[in-house]
Structure formats: C-alpha cells, structure tokens
Design a protein around this nucleic acid. Structure first.
Length: 752
RNA sequence: UCGGGAGUAGUUUAGUUGGUAGAACGCCUGGCUCUGAACCAGGAGGUCGCAGGUUCGAGUCCUGCCUCCCGAGCCA
C-alpha cells in the first residue's frame, strides 16, 4: 500500500464506503501495437495496485479495435511486462476483439433508438462538417435516414459490400457541442483488413469511444482509469452507457497524468525512430525506457514498482527526475547483491616484498547488509588496480594511492608506492610497491591509517570480461529528437578484469562491482567463455561531483519578479454598470464586492431582495458575494434551499454579534443543506457566541498548559504559532468563542 | 478565439469542516566506515501562478487575471 493516498484511491474508498460497488474492479487496457515502457508500468502498478489494496480485481485487456496496427507479439510483450512486474491477471486475458459481436448488437440498438446513423459523407466532408473549436458544425443530410435504411446499410457494411470510407456509423449527439468529441462521433468504420486475432470475418471495426466504455461495462469494471488526453472523451463514454440505458452498476472514467521522465523519450513514435534507425540495439536496448530495456539492463521489477508508487498519481502534467528511479534501483540492490571486485582500467602493481601466494577470506556483503556468504580471493605479488586509483600529482582531498599516501587493497594488505614505472612517452605502466605484512585485513596490527580501500584483482587469476557502461541516452533533460542523443551513452570495455569467483562461482547474476556500481550479467550475450556485464546504475559518487562541478547554473539572477501581464477585464454592460453604481453609491459597498454582485444578475437580485428584508447592505453583500455565490456555482441547476430572507436574518445575527463570522459560515452551510432558518440552527446547535472573557480565559489557560513546547517556541519568536493557539481555543469552544476576544486574551497571556 | 484540465521547495507530491505548509528524491554539513557507497545526525531550500476581496486568521472560500496541457484521426 502506498504511503499517502492518491486522489483515485480516495475516490475508490469513498465509493466502496458508500456501497456504490461491492468490489472494486479495474483494468489495464493497452493497445497491442508497441512495446510497453515505464509509462505503462505506472498504469499497471496503479490499476493492479488498487485492485490489490482494496481486495478487488484487475483485468488485463488488449484494446485491439484497429486491425491495421496490432500484433500478437505485442500481446506477448504486454503479458510479459505485467507478469514480470509481479501482477496476476487471473484466469484469462481479455480482448476487445472478443466483444465484436456484442458491440455490433449494441450499435444496432443505438440505430433502432435513432441514436446512430450511417453517414456517407467522405472523410474530407466529415471534417468540414464538424466545424471548428469556435464554430459549430452542421449535421450531414444522411442523418435523416430511416432506421430501416440504417440497419440495412450497417449490415451490408459489416458484410463487406462497400469500399473502405464509403460509409461510417455515427452517434447522433450534437453537432454544435462545445466539446468537439461530441459532434456525432464515429462509432464504426469499414476496414477490409485481417485482424490479427479474429481474422477475416469483420468488415467493420468499432472505434475506441464506442468499444471502450462498453468493454468496461461488460467486464464489470467500476473505475476506468486512463490518462489525461481522454478527458474530452469522457462525455462520449457517459453518453453511450446512458443512452443505451444499461443496468447499473456502471463504470466511471477518471483521468490521471501520464509519466514523463527527463533525459529520455516515451512516445511510441520516438521510440520507434530510435529502434528503426539503429540508434539503439532493438527494443530491449538497456538505454531505452522500455520494460524490456530495463529488464535487460538489470533493473529489478521491485525497483520499478517502488518507483511507480513513489511518484504518485495526480492530474498535473509533470516530468519526474530519473534520479528518483536510480535511487529506487540502488536502494533495492544495496541489500540484495554480492560485492565483488572488477578493475575497468588495469594498472599493474608489483609488490616487491611479497613472495608466494595465499587465499584471502572475503565476505560478499558489507557489515551493514544482513546476508551471509564469502569467497576465497587469490592474492600474490602481482595485482591490477584501477588507473584512477593512483595519482602521481594528486588533487587536494584525494584519498587513494599516491607516492606519499598508502592505500589498502580491499580484503588484503595496505601497500605503499615505491616507484612509478613509465614508458618512453611518460605514460605510467606499472607501480612498484611494498606491502605491510602486519596489515592483513581482519588481523591488522600495523596501526597504519589509510583513507581508502580500493578494488584490485590478482594478475594470475583475473578473468577478462566485457563490461557495457550505459549512460543516459540523451544529453539534455527534455530531448526533442535525434539531435539530442548523447554520443557517449554506451561505452564498451572489452577487457575489464574480475576476480575469479564472479565467473567461476557465479554467486548471483547481479553484482555490485565495488566502488563502481551495480552490474548485471547480460541475459542475451553472456557466455561462460565470454562473460558480458551491463552497468545497471553507478554508485553515488560525491568525489566525482567535487572533482567535476557541473557547469554552474548561471549565476542565478534571483528571477526578478516575472512581471505578470495583466489581462483585460471585460467591460460591464450598461445594466451591470448601473447596478455597480447603485451598489457603490447608495449602499457604499466596497467596489470589489459591488463588482462581483453587479456582474451577476442572479446574485444582484438575491442581494436586492435580502436588503429589502433587512437593511444591512454591507454584511449581506459579503455573504452573497462569497457564500451564496459558491452555492450557485456548486449547484448550477438545482434550486437553492434557502432564500434572501434567510440570508437577511443571518446577517442580522452577525450584525448583532449573536454569532461570530466563523460560526456564520457553519450556519450558512447547514442552511444551504437543510433549508432551516438560521435562528433554528443556532438554537438547535447552541451556537451563540461566547464573549465572556472569564470563560474564554479559562480555556486559554488550559490550552497553554497543554502545549508547553509551543509556548516556548512562541516566546522564542515564532510568531506563526499565534494562529495555532487561537485555533486551539476556538476548537475547544466549538468555534463559539468570540475570536476578537480570544486574540486579545491569547496575546495578553502569551506575552505575560 | 470556444470547451475541458492543471499550477504547493530544484523534482515528484501530501495538505479532509479556514487555525504551526509536511514527505520522498536531489542538494549541502558533520559523524561513522576496509566501498568517496550504505548507514546515522543535522541543514539549506516555499512570494502555495498573480492581483484583489471576505475573515481575528486564507494553500484552503469569492472575483478577476496569467501561464501551461488536451481537443477539429474513419488512431487509442
């Protein structure tokens, strides 16, 4: 269960609590027309996760209504992805194509209800007739066809009697709807194509908007979760279900933001471009954000699931930092995989004072990982260390081997550099070193303190391996296209050297190569005689950060107030202006409130009527412009359960200080809900204001006594806590205490 | 231009009758360490898109505005 509830889980929980459904039923409905990526993972984790959290069901459904795009290989890839992530779709995989028969029957029903018609306009005409976002469309003359004719035409469409494009079936909704999607949306189109599953039988195929809602309904889906771009389609979703008069319970659609991540691309088109242009090596290239790519790279399903849970679900478009994903995989692997040593860029070290050889005990796990396991590490006179771990002229703060600074060979001895051997060109080719016999790991009595312990391999026993170092596929955060590809996204090291246990013992398929990162035995290319390891992710490296400080984010010029353009406010009509003048002059209303009232005839009338009952224009105006306005807004179609008269008496109580403004809001809400008069509500709930200082003081004393830390903090200068105390006192009195009195007394007592 | 959505630390987000703006990642310090990792402790970082209004008190309520996303496929 995720730590904080997202808005969808909140909805599910409320629906369940309200008894709207017996059990939650979600679905993950991809179209099998491409390889799933981490964005799909978000949807999978969401849908299956909700089912799991609320003991419901989640279907896996292939939304395969376009015969020209879909393929069985994608179905398999999708199934693999879901399974790999650890979710179970139960008995069977669902296919929209299994519903073609039923869907057809529903379409016939719609025709019989005169809610659908066969349109014979061509594609261009349909577009033209649809209008634009600002102009209404107009209906095709074919919309007037009789039910019989429509039925006949539709059946013949199905039977393949017409050319593609000759006719379509459309819903008869509203060609002037402000929502373009509702301008008689297409329900069926003719396609003389072979469907990858159902074959040749059909010549008409349902559109998404018709098939999806009905598939959801037929499967008993309760919450149909999709991405934001379908917001406009929700109206059709509801229209189809309502028009068909389907028996409840019915599904409802909710939308959430799809996943975006920096330094990568997620769109099908761009991914395809990368694969087909051979910028990467296939759909499972470890640099790709595809499930297959992450899998091949060595990411664990657990880390992906955790990531999806961490980023949450909301409706704001956003781009997640890939660092969050990297954290998840490091965090997961840290407690799971054995540590071994690998030297990427070997530099020979000869330990001049060491003779013979020995096998050293070396644990696979560091002290803080509660796992057992170790191997024998061969050690002798000649070893390799990484070039980066020796420096002849070390920068400040360098911890590793230098001519003056000894270093420990991890699990072995401390060595000190005695001589640097170079070739004619001055390149370092070998280090001659001495070791300290009493510094052996585990029984060190040398007393020598070193800053660092570095990885190494013994020359005689080291095994060559290929290591593939993967970096971000794109060099910028928001890549647009191929031009943003990072030329160094893959670096292959053909002859890295690992300690023998890695390939002889094979304690795991994933390792941490100490001080380098996490690596995975490539599932495709790895062979015993030619091992290949993929870099999953590097270790955090604060030294590298210090060494190569990023190109300083330009001297942040404190984003000097982005002077916001003020938009134009619509001018008032003569009538509105007249009201405005009357309100400001006659009633002395504040111009802001007068403006709100004047521009809304309903509010203005309401206000006038209330003032006629009780002449306190300012108080009434405030209530009308704020509270009443909200009621109108929230219930645009319903009649209000209260009228100007009630508002007038509420204003009266406020003016006479019978109740506080805080309580007035409460009374108003109750009034709006039940229609009772304010007097009755105040009477029934005993909401009269408490202004007696003695009574209030007692409450304050109590609050102060109960919150000594906050009192101290306040006295130290945390002014913001003042509101806390006032709030506590008000809470204790059920909101009835006179806030002005409370404020004065709290200040007095706290300052005392 | 019309309709629908969305704006809270660098990033992703929580914020439930208006009452101390929290978390995770990232960043910075320090400690510990036979991984410059992990771990532990601490810190910086927020004009809650902007401007008004209501209120003793607004991220939360009201009004106006700004910015971004989606929408005129016989794709999904």
């Amino acid at each position: 269960m995720s730590e904080t509830k997202d808005f969808l889980r909140t909805i599910v929980e409320e629906d369940l609590k309200a008894g709207k459904y017996e059990q939650v039923h979600t679905r993950f409905p991809p179209e099998p027309n491409g390889f799933p990526h981490i964005g799909h993972a978000k949807s999978i984790v969401l849908n299956f996760g909700i089912a799991r959290d609320y003991e419901g069901i989640c279907n896996l459904r292939m939304d395969d209504t376009d015969p020209t795009k879909e393929d069985m290989k994608y179905v398999e890839a999708l199934k693999d992805a879901v399974k790999w992530l650890g979710f179970d779709w139960g008995e069977k995989v669902y296919f929209t194509s299994d519903y073609f028969g039923k869907l057809y029957d529903y379409a016939v029903d719609l025709i019989k209800m005169e809610k659908a018609y066969v349109d014979s306009l061509n594609e261009e005409e349909i577009r033209e007739y649809r209008g634009t976002v600002t102009e209404p469309g107009r209906r095709s003359k074919y919309a007037e066809r009789s039910v019989e004719e429509n039925l006949d035409l539709f059946e013949r469409m199905k039977n393949g009697e017409f050319e593609e494009g000759a006719h379509v079936l459309r819903a008869k909704i509203d060609m002037s709807s402000p929502n373009m999607k509702m301008r008689d949306p297409l329900l069926y189109r003719i396609r003389h194509a072979s469907h990858y599953r159902v074959g040749e039988g059909w010549h008409v195929y349902p559109m998404y908007d018709f098939a999806h809602c009905l598939s959801d309904y037929m499967e008993g889906i309760t919450h149909s979760l999709c991405t934001l771009e379908f917001e406009n389609n929700r109206d059709i979703y509801d229209w189809v279900i309502e028009t068909l008069g389907l028996e409840p319970p019915r599904p409802y659609q909710y939308e959430f933001a799809r996943l975006n991540m920096n330094y990568t691309v997620m769109s099908k088109r761009k991914l395809l471009e990368l694969v087909e242009g051979n910028y990467v090596n296939g759909w499972d290239d470890p640099r790709l954000p595809t499930i297959a790519g992450y899998r091949r790279r060595g990411y664990t399903p657990e880390s992906i699931v955790t990531f999806c849970e961490q980023i949450g679900v909301a409706k704001a478009n956003s781009t997640v930092d890939v660092a969050q994903l990297e954290f998840c995989i490091r965090d997961d692997l840290n407690t799971k995989v054995p540590r071994v040593m690998c030297v990427m860029d070997p530099l020979k070290v000869t330990i001049v004072n060491y003779e013979g050889s020995e096998l050293l005990d070396a644990s696979y796990y560091p002290h803080d990982v509660p796992k057992e396991g170790s191997r024998k590490l061969p050690f002798s006179k000649e070893v390799y260390i990484d070039r980066a771990d020796f420096s002849e002229n070390p920068p400040k703060g360098y911890y590793r081997l230098t001519p003056d600074q000894p270093v420990r060979l991890k699990h072995a001895y401390i060595i000190a550099c005695k001589e640097v051997v170079k070739d004619e060109e001055g390149n370092i080719v070998e280090i001659k070193a001495e070791y300290f016999p009493d510094s052996k790991s585990g029984s060190d009595t040398s007393g020598i303190k070193v800053r660092s312990a570095i990885q190494w391999v013994e020359v005689a026993s080291a095994k060559p391996v290929e290591v593939r170092l993967y970096d971000r596929l794109f060099k910028c955060e928001a890549p647009e296209g191929l031009e943003d590809i990072n030329p160094d996204s893959l670096k292959v090291i053909k002859n890295a050297l690992v300690e023998p246990a890695v390939v002889d013992e094979k304690p795991d398929v994933r390792f941490q190569f100490e001080r380098e990162g996490y690596f995975y035995a490539d599932p495709v290319d790895y062979r015993d005689d030619a091992p290949v390891f993929n870099k999953i992710v590097g270790l955090k490296d604060s030294w590298a950060k210090k060494e190569k400080p990023k190109p300083q984010n330009k001297p942040k010029q404190k984003a000097q107030k982005p002077v916001q353009k003020e938009g134009e406010v619509a001018p008032m009509s003569a009538e509105e202006q007249g009201r405005f003048d009357r309100f400001t002059h006659e009633y002395k209303l504040n111009p802001e409130v007068a403006n709100t009232l004047a521009r809304d005839a309903k509010l203005a009338d309401f206000f006038d009527e209330a003032v006629a009952v009780y002449e306190s224009p300012v108080t009434i105006a405030n209530i009308v412009a704020n509270e009443v306005a909200r009621e109108f807004k929230e219930h645009p179609d319903d009649a209000l359960r209260f009228g100007p008269k009630e508002v007038a008496s509420l204003a009266k109580m406020l003016d006479e200080e019978t109740i506080s403004s805080k309580i007035a809001k409460q009374v108003f809400e109750e009034m709006a809900k039940t229609g009772k008069s304010p007097e009755t509500i105040v009477e029934e709930k005993d909401l009269k204001q408490i202004s007696d200082p003695v009574q209030i003081a007692a409450v304050i004393d109590d609050v102060i006594a109960k919150n000594p830390e906050n009192v101290a903090k306040y006295k130290e200068g945390n002014q913001k806590l003042f509101g806390f105390f006032v709030g506590q006192v008000l809470k204790a009195t059920g909101g009835k205490a006179n806030p002005k009195v409370v404020n004065d007394l709290v200040r007095e007592k706290l300052e005392a």
